[in-house]
Structure formats: C-alpha cells, structure tokens
Design a protein around this nucleic acid. Structure first.
Lengths: 217, 217
DNA sequence: GAATTCGCTTAACAAATGTTAACAAATCAC
DNA sequence: GTGATTTGTTAACATTTGTTAAGCGAATTC
C-alpha cells in the first residue's frame, strides 16, 4: 500500500489508469505502460520488468549521478524533473538537458561506453525514479529479446532530439532559440532557474535577461 | 568479377582483407565486416545480409536523397564521402553532417518517422553505397534478430556523436570549434569546400576565413 | 581563349553576444 | 523576522560574429 502512494500522480486521469491490475494482479506502472506502447508485453514480461527496476526517490536538489564515476544505471522518471549538467574548466556549469516524467535518463555516454562521466544529474524538484543497472538490463534483455527493439527506439528518439537541437544551435539566433523553447517546452522554462535554461540554450544569463525584456514588447 | 572492382579499395591493407571467402565462398565485404564487429554473424547470416543490401554508385556531385520525399532507405558507405544538408527559408544551405567510408547514412529522422525529409544528401566525391530499404531491413531483422542489437548500437553511437556536437555548439566559440574540428576531423575539412565546413560549424564562410587567418599566427 | 562560375579572401561596418559590476528581488537558514 | 544566499535585472563597454560588397585566382564552360 505504501508503494501505491509513490505512483500516485494526481495529473494522471483516473486512479486505475495509473496502477492497473491486469489478469492475476499484474502490477503495471507507468514504466511498463511506457514500454508497452513500443513493444507489447505479456503479463509475465510486465512482472519481470517491474521487478527488475528498483525505486529511488530524490529530494529537490539531490544528486543521482556525480561526475568522475562510471554511470552504470539508467532510470525512468516516474515523476519530477531532473537536470544533466557538467562543469567547464573555467568553473561555470553547462546544462546538457532537462528530463521530465515519462522519459529515461542517464549519463548516456558513460552508460554506453563504460567510461567515467563528467556529468552530474540532480533533481530540480522532488523526483521518483525507476532504476536499473546496465548488468541487469542486459540480463533482462536476454530474457525478453524484444527489449532490444525498445532500447533501439529509445536511442533513435534520443538521436532525433539531439539532431534537432544541433540544427537550432547551428543556425538560429539566441532570440529565436529562446522563443522556440518558450513555445515548445514551456514546462521546462517555467519553474527552472533562468541560468539553467540560458546555458541549455548556449547563452549567458545576462543576455537571456536582455532577450526576455526585448520579448515583452 | 566486375563487382570485385567496386570493392577494390586501395587504402585497405591486403586484397583478401577486403573481399574474404570464408568457408564455401561466403562473400564478406566491408558491410558485413562492420556489422560482424558488433554482433558476430554466421555464414548464412552474412549471405543473407549481403544479398539484402543493393549497390549504388554516385558520381561526385550526384544526389542520393532529395528534400520533399520520404527517405525510406539507409546506406552503408563503402567508399567516398557524402554531405547531408538542408535549405533554410532564406535560401542558404545548412550542412547537417558529413559521412565518410565505413559509416551508415540516411536522412535519419525521415527514415525513422516515415515523414518527408527536408534534407538532401549528395556525394562530395565518387561514392559507393550499399543500400537497403526500411521494409527489407525490417524483414532482415526478423530473420536475424541480433540485427536489432546492431541497429541499437548504431543509434546509440549516432546519439553520442550528436551529444558531443551539442556540447561544442553550446559552449565553444567559433574559433575553438574550428580548431577542434581541424584537430579531430582533418579528413573532412581538407578537400571539402570551406563554406560547407563553415555551415557545419554554425558560422559564415567569411567569418571562417577570418578565423583561418587568425590561426596562421 | 574568353567568359563565367566557383571558392575563397578581405575590409568596413552593423548587429549580436559576452563581460564586468552593481543592485534589486526572491528565497533560504536560523 | 532578519540576515545571508540565491536569482534575476540592468547598464556600460568589449568582443565576437554577421552583413555587404568588392576583388582575385583557379577551374569550368562555351
């Protein structure tokens, strides 16, 4: 019963939409619902996946990944919001990306190449994660081969996202980038310190402040 | 016998390194050699893959993909070099990326989402491709499930590449970007019109000319 | 071989963006 | 609540980058 509380996301429609009991009380959370949208799962597979992913709660400001270590886990964000960032030599932070509920997060390059990460991941608000280690993910993928397809689709979508970002950083002005983000990702800009968004867009907080003023007209 | 000529890449070490006859004359080209480095293939699988990929030769300047159509193919570059670019509203070209031998190329977002592409792909020099349609790739992946793993790894590597590019565009000056590319990808910069490299780096040709002059000191 | 196009450079100027520093506003710690 | 820290704003100035226009040599075309 305690767990139900963890999954309790008021923004989801009906309560039974969130935690469903399929057949013989198979527990299907947002995690397997998400996977099931790409590759359809049997009740046994749902159980295996739900059991393989652990739970992790982070308080606002709490760190999940710290630079210098190998990030050997990947997580699904049940609720909350996180930021992936690194420190430049000069000491200033660079925000790589933000991750909101219903998406996967990791220090991907470290996870995929087994090398120490230079990134940090911290919670921008209270956050609930479903976490799995690389080892366990590989085991699970042997047990459920169709997970390879799911993992491929996730990687492909990450690529598409990054390709779009490259195009924007390459050919749009700071003003256009801010405008676009405000329109397409207001949920990220709002409620996140301006300096984080600024570095995500590749500009200084001062300049972004200037752009905001300009936009008021 | 004519085909052997196509594969004849003088830059590869011994001739039998390039076209190998394993067991009962299994033909293994750079294509399956590349795949085999990620997921090991049986002779039957090698044959199936080699037969599923067609051949395509492009002369310098020739187009493989044109904007407006759905790109439903992916290709492996046997030899040569290509450029992926799109036209901005203003009419100027933006170079998305360059692809050299031994890598896969496509208008990936179009290929993955079945939507018309706004990109073009043309050959920077005479080029030989091994081409497969999305449909055939899916069939082949059913026949050889481990190809899902290979496709996942390809997508992951594409993501890693794009993530690095985002970080550079986000936080490095034009001078630093050019310097870095000159050091890490000289094979692309040399022998490619400067304007293409400039747009790849997100700067104007004039500014890049300025940077080169500055670098002479 | 003359004309043309292409690729690249240069220069003067304009616009965008960064830097520094000071301060205001909001939030946090106690 | 009050002081301290974080966050956001503003302004003056410096630097980077874009724009426009011109020119030049090599390759290409006719």
């Amino acid at each position: 019963m305690e767990r139900k509380k963890i999954f309790g996301e008021p923004r989801c429609s009906a309560p039974n939409e969130n935690v469903s009991f399929v057949q013989k009380s198979i527990r299907m959370t947002v995690l397997t619902k998400n996977i099931n949208q790409i590759v359809s799962l049997t009740p046994e597979e749902i159980n295996a996946i739900e059991n393989a992913f652990g739970y992790l709660e982070l308080s606002k400001g709490g760190f999940w990944v710290k630079q210098g270590k190998i990030c050997d886990q990947v997580a699904f964000v049940v609720s909350g919001k996180l930021r992936n960032f690194y420190m430049e030599d000069a000491g200033n932070e660079v925000t790589c990306f933000f991750v909101t509920a219903n998406h996967f997060i990791s220090s991907f390059t470290s996870f995929l190449t087994n090398t120490p990460t230079h990134e940090n991941i911290s919670a921008l608000e209270d956050t609930v994660l479903r976490v799995i280690s690389k080892n366990d993910l590989e085991k699970l993928s042997v047990l459920i081969p169709k997970l390879q397809i799911f993992r491929r689709v996730i990687a492909e979508n990450l690529f598409i996202t990054m390709e779009k970002r490259v195009a924007i950083l390459q050919s749009k002005t700071a003003y256009e980038r801010y405008e676009k983000m405000l329109k397409e990702n207001p949920e990220i800009i709002l409620g996140v310190p301006l300096q984080y968004t600024a570095s995500f867009l590749g500009i200084t907080p001062q300049h972004m402040s200037r752009l905001r003023k300009e936009m008021m007209k």
